[in-house]
């Protein structure tokens, strides 16, 4: 590890091995797309009403409590139109509305410091058991969380998947398009909330019921993991949903008795070195519901099993 990789690797693309690899990459390069046509397709999608932007939401109702918090920074005031006949005046303007030259109506756009994320969710539809919102585990949402909507409406999470959740609403009505928000409180939730913005691959871990992160090399080696690559469990999610009677249904991680602080080294006999490998191993395991996980817990090796 004493060599300088910057110098050591210089020119690898000119070596026979490097050239061979470049040829392989070029051989399997995707066919060039038509970027202009792609851009037109994107703009067309944006112009359809159902793809209303969630970024520039009307947060006037939220402005009072949010501005009071130190981590929230209000940076812009934007004049926008609104629909006086709308059933839910806090709904975001559609793109089509934004394109129309707007008479003056005030809108406050509030931007949030990343260190204090909030969960944003919009009602996307209805199931037999409640409303579906477009936020889930990856956003930091957990069963039992309560989100605030407009005019005192609250939504309590009764089931949560990776990308969406089912909620029961109290205090009023919530129609498709209604926005809900909740503050993220725990560090693990903050990590989860950052996944969607920073390209993580949370699905497998959250369906599994755990939030994981790469372990520092030195610490992994101290456990005897020779290549120093392992994953630590930051948080386990005990329940992903409640049944009709309200009883929580345990996640696989909870059934395994996986705990925060455990260091995952193997899944079904395969050494998992990184999140991709864990995702792959879990992808198969979640399908067949047969799971053997080897962890280090308090420095000791423990085998967890579920069949």
């Amino acid at each position: 590890m004493n060599s300088d990789p910057e110098n050591h690797d210089a020119g690898f693309d000119q070596t026979p091995e490097g050239l061979e690899l470049i040829a392989l990459l070029q051989k399997h390069a995707p066919p060039a797309p038509d970027s202009r046509r792609g851009a037109e397709a994107v703009l067309q999608r944006l112009r359809t009403p159902q793809t209303a932007p969630r970024g520039n939401l009307l947060f006037l109702r939220w402005a009072g409590p949010l501005v009071g918090a130190a981590a929230v920074v209000a940076i812009a005031f934007v004049v926008l139109n609104s629909s006086p006949n709308s059933d839910h005046t806090n709904a975001p303007p559609t793109v089509a509305e934004k394109e129309t030259p707007a008479p003056a109506v005030s809108q406050v756009v509030i931007r949030h410091d990343r260190s204090w994320p909030e969960i944003e969710a919009v009602v996307r539809g209805q199931s037999a058991d409640g409303l579906l919102i477009d936020a889930g585990l990856k956003d930091g949402l957990r069963v039992g969380d309560v989100l605030q909507g407009p005019r005192g409406v609250q939504a309590r999470v009764s089931a949560v998947g990776v990308f969406e959740a089912r909620v029961s609403v109290t205090g009023g009505k919530a129609l498709p398009g209604t926005e809900f928000r909740a503050r993220v409180t725990s560090d693990a939730q903050k990590r989860a909330a950052s996944f969607s913005d920073f390209g993580g691959d949370p699905g497998a871990f959250f369906e599994f019921g755990a939030v994981v992160s790469a372990m520092p090399l030195g610490e992994a080696r101290m456990l005897g993991i020779s290549d120093g690559a392992a994953l630590r469990v930051d948080e386990t999610i005990p329940a992903l949903m409640k049944d009709a009677g309200g009883a929580p249904q345990s996640s696989l991680a909870a059934q395994l008795d996986l705990r925060a602080g455990d260091v995952i080294v193997e899944v079904n006999g395969a050494h998992v070195r990184n999140e991709n490998e864990l995702a792959q191993a879990l992808g198969w395991s979640l399908d067949v519901h047969m799971l053997n996980v080897r962890v280090f817990r308090n420095g000791k090796q423990v085998d967890l099993s579920l069949r």
Binding site: P33, G38, V42, T51, R54, G55, N56, V109, R111
Partner: peptide
């Protein structure tokens, strides 16, 4: 897969537009 990648590329930019203020 090229056709899926095209679809995802378009979806990506819809998301980017929605999150652009962040």
């Amino acid at each position: 897969n090229a056709s899926d990648a095209e679809e995802i590329a378009q979806e990506t930019f819809v998301q980017v537009f929605e999150k652009l203020d962040r």
